[in-house]
């Protein structure tokens, strides 16, 4: 028995060493960006190999004061909130309908939505671009919000429908017997019950818009209406000046709110993603 416990301890120590190393290697790019962001220019890329000799916050100050970071931030917030309102406003009622009613075309519609969801939106980006050009929606937040909301709508419908399915219909029936109208029942009973799912879905829409760069950099071409993605993209594209430590400071600033949001809804991410993605 003693040999066995000795072996266990040895095994566990090896595992611990392995995981400490693995976590360290995993975090290197993020740590490196952080170190870059607090180093003064010379020590970042000069001789100091890993740790900056004189940590400083001046990159953060520079990004906030000298670069239009706050305008990018404002634009990103406008896009995220606008998308969230439009996507949730349209998909909550639709997911309720798909969950509660049995009507002709329901199954076909749900399947069609899944197939459409598998379509990589990059592939129709040119068609949307041409279409929006004719409709004067380029360089326009409304255009981008429409795109984001349209693509997140499918995900939201599937995600919330799954949750509505788990709310027993008897609750609604008894409310109806008590004389509630359908509007009242939805507003006062069903939506409060579905609140966890609605919040999680809304946060995921928010994260999606915050993290999207391709459509943002293609459709917002003027510098004054860049959002964070456009601004950061531009910062890292200038190779030969001090913009890299600025870029890492900006990267840290943009990531922190998302990291907080992500870890606060993390346990819902998994179920949400897989039910939304493939279940047919």
């Amino acid at each position: 028995m003693r040999i066995k416990t000795a072996r266990r301890i040895a095994l566990l120590s090896i595992l611990n060493v392995f995981f400490v190393l693995l976590c360290f290697i995993t975090l290197i790019p993020i740590l490196y960006a952080f170190l870059l962001s607090i180093s003064s220019d010379s020590s970042a890329f000069g001789n100091g190999f890993l740790f900056p000799q004189s940590p400083t916050l001046k990159n953060y100050k520079a990004i906030l004061v000298e670069e239009p970071f706050l305008i990018w931030l404002k634009n990103s917030v406008v896009l995220s909130l606008g998308t969230m309102i439009l996507a949730m406003g349209t998909s909550v009622t639709a997911s309720y309908a798909f969950s509660r009613f049995r009507f002709r075309g329901r199954n076909e519609m749900l399947k069609l939505l899944l197939i459409l969801n598998a379509f990589p939106q990059i592939l129709s980006m040119f068609a949307i671009f041409r279409l929006f050009k004719n409709m004067n929606l380029l360089n326009n937040y409304i255009g981008l919000i429409l795109i984001y909301a349209g693509s997140m709508c499918i995900f939201s419908i599937w995600n919330m429908k799954g949750y509505f399915d788990t709310i027993p219909i008897e609750i609604e029936e008894s409310a109806r017997i008590d004389g509630g109208s359908s509007g009242q029942i939805i507003w006062k009973i069903v939506l409060p019950l579905a609140r966890p799912s609605i919040i999680v879905t809304a946060v995921m829409v928010l994260i999606f818009v915050w993290n999207e760069y391709l459509f943002a950099t293609t459709f917002l071409m003027k510098e004054e209406n860049y959002n964070l993605a456009g601004g950061l993209y531009q910062l890292q594209a200038n190779d030969y000046n001090r913009s890299w430590s600025l870029f890492s400071a900006a990267a840290i600033l943009v990531s922190v709110p998302i990291l907080i949001l992500f870890f606060s809804i993390q346990k819902y991410m998994v179920s949400g993603l897989t039910t939304g993605g493939v279940k047919g």
Binding site: L86, S91, Y96, L116, A127, L131, G150
Partner: peptide, 29 residues
């Protein structure tokens, strides 16, 4: 629940949106 029109009314806005942003561009492509 059986109702022919109400569910379509509920899902009409999102179907319009998906139609404009996802379906129409595919057809156009």
């Amino acid at each position: 629940k059986k109702n022919k029109i109400l569910p379509w009314e509920y899902s009409f806005p999102s179907i319009m949106l998906i139609g404009l942003i996802v379906v129409f561009p595919i057809i156009y492509t």
